[in-house]
Simulated assay, not measured.
Amino acid sequence: MTTTSLERKFAIGVAGLSAWSWAIGARARRAGRRRREAEFSVMPRGDGTVVEVDQRRPANAAFGVVFFNGLGLPHEEWTGVRRYLPETAAHVGYNRPGHGLSSPRDGVTLEEHFEIVDELRDRYLDGLPVVLVGHSLGGHLAAAYAELRGGTGLSHVVMVDPTVTADLRARAGDSADAWTRQRLLMERVWAVAGLNVLRPLGSFGGHFSDEIRASLTQYHALPRTWATAYREYLAAHSYRPVRGLDMPLHVVTALKGTIAERHLASQQRLLALSERSRHHVYEDVDHMGVVADERCAKALAHLASPESRP
């Protein structure tokens, strides 16, 4: 067999594999959209856009919880926590613009993000005291919203291994920042090619049930997910730090997989945001396990209850 024929066969094989992986990715995207349309609702907004919502309000609701997602994650990340909320808890999980069924929008400001939360509260949690719970970048957004809105019907804030925007700015341009940007861009490339459906989820995947892992895989198969996450990551560098809260605060920190001393010190500084703050540290849990691990999910559900106010 000649070198030319070998090269031709190799090229045909690569092309076939690429077409196969693209088809698998396209199928996952279609299945994911059908799943979302069947399981979740959308909240229409005055500007013609919609926001994907997963909400529950029992007849005997005594308080409400708004969940803020981490970077590149859908509201399904809170499934385990929601399962352990008290029966008297109403809750709202939602996807920010450009994620899931939520309409994409370029250049969404913090105030526009918070207007969505105002609308969610008015529509689904009206009249209830509200607890704000956010993970990763969502942790910062929850605290920033609480600072801006003050005591308007808010109970307390739970920041779960939150992003510290001052640290993001300090790391801008260093190797960690470059790696994060590259990873988000490559995830988009893999999504276009369908390759991120073929490879297993990251280490956090093992924390979730098979159903949630399937949903996450379909969600991450969307190139738009990663394009939006990349824009959100860049925007987060310009978010000003939260200066202070006039309500109680829980900070939950996961140390596994981090430079523990540095990460702990950064998270401890957040305790100064409130005169009534409490720190909860998990040395044996990583950034995703802190919301997905059953033990942590139970603990977060308790912290989301008004009775846990520091």
Rank of each mutant, 00 (worst) to 15 (best):
G64H: 01
I116Q: 06
P310R: 03
W20G: 13
F208R: 07
F40G: 03
F114G: 02
V285N: 01
G289E: 03
V251G: 01
V281S: 05
R8S: 11
A166T: 12
R269A: 12
S21A: 15
V130R: 01
L201Q: 08
P129C: 05
V252M: 07
H75L: 11
H113D: 13
P248S: 06
D177W: 06
A170P: 04
A146R: 02
S238H: 14
L85G: 02
T152A: 15
V14E: 09
R276E: 13
M288Q: 11
S41H: 11
R121I: 15
S5M: 14
A214K: 09
Y124C: 08
V14W: 13
L148S: 15
G205P: 01
Q182T: 13
E37P: 06
L184C: 04
G13L: 08
T228Y: 05
S41E: 13
E76W: 09
G72A: 12
G139P: 04
T3G: 13
Y282T: 07
H263W: 12
S103M: 10
H279V: 05
L201W: 02
G134P: 10
V108H: 01
G244L: 05
A28D: 04
P44F: 02
H279K: 10
A227D: 10
Y84R: 10
P310L: 00
V66Y: 02
A38S: 12
G206Q: 11
R27Y: 12
G32P: 00
V50W: 02
R149E: 03
T253S: 14
S103T: 15
S305P: 04
R240H: 10
S238Q: 13
L300N: 03
A191E: 01
L270Y: 02
G202S: 13
S215G: 09
R105F: 05
L148A: 15
G257I: 09
D122W: 04
L185S: 09
V157T: 04
A142Y: 02
R34Q: 14
H237F: 12
A299M: 11
A31V: 06
V281I: 15
V50T: 04
A61T: 09
D210F: 05
A265V: 04
Q268L: 03
L198M: 13
G46H: 12
S103R: 12
A31T: 09
G194C: 07
G202W: 11
L128W: 01
A178D: 06
K298F: 04
A172C: 11
V291M: 04
A176G: 12
M159Q: 08
H156P: 01
S209W: 03
P104V: 08
P241A: 07
D246L: 08
V252N: 03
G206R: 14
G70H: 04
V133R: 00
V281Q: 07
P129H: 10
K256M: 10
M43G: 01
F204G: 13
S215Q: 09
P58K: 07
R213W: 05
A19N: 09
R269T: 06
H135N: 07
T2D: 12
Y84N: 07
T152N: 15
S203T: 14
A62P: 00
R30A: 14
G206M: 08
S18R: 08
G32F: 01
D106T: 15
V192L: 10
R240L: 13
R183I: 07
T79Y: 05
A292P: 00
A90S: 06
T152P: 00
